[in-house]
Each structure stands twice: as C-alpha cells, then as structure tokens.
Nucleic acid binder design. Structure first.
Lengths: 237, 237
DNA sequence: TGCCGGAAAATGTGATCACATTTTTGACGG
DNA sequence: CCGTCAAAAATGTGATCACATTTTCCGGCA
C-alpha cells in the first residue's frame, strides 16, 4: 500500500534565503514538532515535490539533517526519522542533562543582569503560553530559555550539540507535551535564575537537571513512550 | 596572490563506496590531520578538481562536514577550516572531558571481558606506535581506544557528538603531537582499564579526564596554541 | 600615491538529465 | 494459497549546465 502523502507545515520563505536553507528549516521544524512519523521514508523527489523545489536543495538539506542525527540513513540509502526505543530515549535524556549542565557551568560566569532580565522575560512568556495551552509555543520558548542561557558564554561550542539532542528528542517531546498537565510544575526556571543571581554553580546544575527531568521523565514518560513505540513509532527496545 | 594549490592526502576509494562517502572521508581525514590550514577557503571546484570528481559529491561532503562543525560556513557562503582561538580551544577541551566522562559512565556497565581484551590490544599497539614515533597512528589508535570503550554501550547517541569535538580539535591536536615527548607519560589507559575491571565509575572518570588533559593541556598547550595562532592559524582570542 | 568603481573572473546555487541501485509488482509454478 | 523470480517502477547518485552572487582585478581620478 502507498504511504500517506507527505505533509509538511509550510514555513515562510525569508527574503534572500536560499532554497537550501528554507528546505532545511522546513524539514527541521517538521521533525521537531513530530509531524513526520518515525520510520516514514523521506524520499528526495517526494520532499522536492511537496515543497516545490528541485531535488538539489532537498538532497543537501536531508544530508545535513542526517549529520545532525535528526534523520537516519539506512543501509538501503533510504532516509527516515529515527525510530525511538526506550533505551535510546533514556540515553538521550541522560546525555541532554550532562550536556546542558556542562553548558550552564560554562555560561554561569558570563551571565549579566541584562541576560537575566532577558531570561525572566522569556520565562514570563513561557508561563503565559503554558497557561494558554499553546503546546508548540511552550516547546519553542522553553528551548529559547535554555539556549539564551548557554549562549551567555561567548565561545559557543556546546550549543550545536545540544540542538542535535533536542532534535532527536523532538518528535517524542512534542507527544509528551500533548498530555500537558493542567497544574503547574515547580518552576525550575525560577530556581535556575536564582542560582544565576547568586552565581551558584551547584544550585544551577540541580535546577537544570530537575527542569529537564520534569519536562521529560516526569510527564508520565513510561506510558507515553510505550504508547509511542506501540503505535508504530519505533521498534521494541 | 593566489593561494597555494590544494593538496589532499589520497585515501583509497573502497569498492562500492559512493563518491560522496569517499570525498567525505578524504576531506575529514585531511581536516583531522591538519593538512588544510585554518582559514584556507575550500571551494567546491577546487576540491572537485583535486579529487577528480564532479561538484555534486563535493557539495554534499562539504555541507556534511559543516554540519559537524569540522568546517565553518562564512557569511560569504565560503567554507573554511575554522580558526582556533585560545578560549575556543579551552571550551572544546572542557566539552571533550564532559562528553567523554559521561560516555564512559554510560558504557561502564556494558564492558565485558572481551571488550577489555580488545582495549588492551589497542593500547599495546598504541604503545608501539608511540615508541616508534608514528604520530598519525598514535592519534588514530588513541581515538580507537576511546571509541571502542564508549561503544560498549549498545545504545549509541554520544559517539557522534564526541567525533564532532575530535574533528574540531583535530588540526591542533596533530600539531601538539608533533612535539611528542620522548618519555612516556603516565599510562592513563592502564588506569582506565583497571577502573573498568573494578567497575569503578569514579576512578574511570578520573583516569579519562587525566588522559585527556595529558594529551591536550599537558603537552605544552599554551606555547603551542600561541605558535599556532600566531602562525596565521587563527585570530587572537 | 591612494582610493574609487566597474568589468572580468571565480564561486555558490539551483535545475535537469542519465545511469545504477533498490523496491515493488505481478505472473508463473508449486 | 503461497513462494519465486523477472520485469517495471521508484529512488539515490553523479555529471553538466545556466544563472546569481561574490571576489578580484585594473584603469581612471582626486
């Protein structure tokens, strides 16, 4: 049977943006919000036709996302969204914690009052989005919060790796958020900001790890992952 | 004035290997051993002519290495080996330690007797190469040792990120090895293997961190980096 | 001499085609 | 009814071309 037609959310093509970049952004976004089911083969011609460009930019975008481990290249040379397993998920979570705690450590000395204000502003908008139940925005703003924190360090070498992990967790995180709790969780971002103000590395690590675990492990991960895997999202671990 | 002609070490093209993979391997190897001076622009046509292939595989290989942060894409759309600065170097070292310690932690429970034997074998060959002063092989075998250790964990998500960091440190590490000491340093690999045998996570971390610092920071980094930067290798930090 | 400005060369980008490999299809025989 | 295998379709790979952008070069002018 033929696979369902590929549907990609249309991202506006920025002025002076190359087709390459546009295709890359579109595919990346699609993967991140999980509209492409894991295991669904992404063929060059298919994506090209869907986005209305030639094969060339698609090839480079697919290759790029593969390098970032957002897509998997099979032996067949076919490309798909990687399937998730319970153990891979666990590894990704632990890796995310290790990476982000390290990034926070290295950013801490550079965090200025301005930066703190910016983080607070993002957090406010995040709370609003959370209260309004706008899932996609919650994800985006949460990532913004973390990204802007780590970017306080002017010598950025960690951020690209963190983005890679986010991409790999992306499809599933989005699913987890779909069962977003009504009640607020403990505000780990506030704790993190307090730690930043006190220049307290240990407290910062603790707050971040708790924040990540809250967002991932705590939201009924086990059941969610099980449902995800069983719905054809991936092989059994 | 015209830049010096591009010279790339010729890697044998494996049977059934696509041009894409071959170009990727060649460029990657060239970057890793530091034959391409940082800042040297890598043009598609140039690489294509040097390797005797068309532009297509080169484009994808360059794009791929850029995604792995082995190459930098400038605003001009030009691609070059990233320039090194003292602070970027420091960040990369710390990141490497954080990543590899984490990887070792996650691999430890999976390390079998067979695996330990394999590591010991690699280490033996490494000692031989070190004694013989074969720089390139020392680098390769050292990486093999670390890679095979982390790969004990069957759910590999860290390794690609570590490889990325290796690539970014590559050009400079190679330089550092060029002043390889005559006397053996403390054998950190033995310490690591002892820790593995005892299933002792903390000792493993300590051994690995020491091993990495020995290989990087200890080999007169400061002077080397200074020389490297001043020789046109990168901007002043 | 030093600096501007446009022409010429170099380079990246995107489209299209030919071909090799892989996957799917469907007819045939058990 | 099911497995097998060859033909057909789909797909990835690599080459080549046309065009837009960028860089380099060089003559003219202050």
């Amino acid at each position: 049977m033929a696979p369902p037609p590929l549907e990609l959310p249309t991202l506006e093509r920025l002025p002076r943006e190359t087709a390459n970049q546009w295709v890359y952004r579109s595919l990346r976004h699609a993967v991140m919000i999980g509209v492409v089911p894991p295991g669904r083969p992404l063929t060059i011609r298919d994506v090209a036709a869907t986005l209305g460009v030639s094969a060339m930019p698609v090839r480079e975008a697919l290759r790029r996302l593969s390098s970032e481990n957002a897509l998997a290249v099979l032996d067949n040379r076919r490309i798909e969204v990687p399937r998730m397993t319970a153990s891979r998920f666990r590894e990704l979570c632990e890796l995310r914690i290790a990476l982000e705690c390290h990034a926070a450590d290295r950013a801490l000395p550079y965090v200025s009052g301005e930066r703190l204000a910016e983080l607070a502003a993002i957090d406010t908008r995040l709370d609003a989005a959370y209260a309004a139940g706008v899932r996609e925005q919650v994800t985006t703003l949460n990532q913004d919060f973390h990204r802007r924190l780590y970017e306080a360090n002017p010598n950025q070498v960690v951020m690209p790796l963190i983005e890679s992990v986010w991409l790999q967790l992306g499809p599933f995180l989005h699913l987890a958020l779909s069962r977003m709790r009504e009640f607020y969780q403990v505000d780990r971002h506030s704790e993190a900001m307090a730690a930043l103000r006190r220049q307290d590395p240990l407290a910062l690590r603790i707050a971040l790890e708790a924040d990540i675990r809250d967002g991932i492990t705590h939201v009924g991960t086990h059941e969610l992952l099980k449902a995800y895997v069983e719905s054809g999202g991936g092989a059994i671990a």
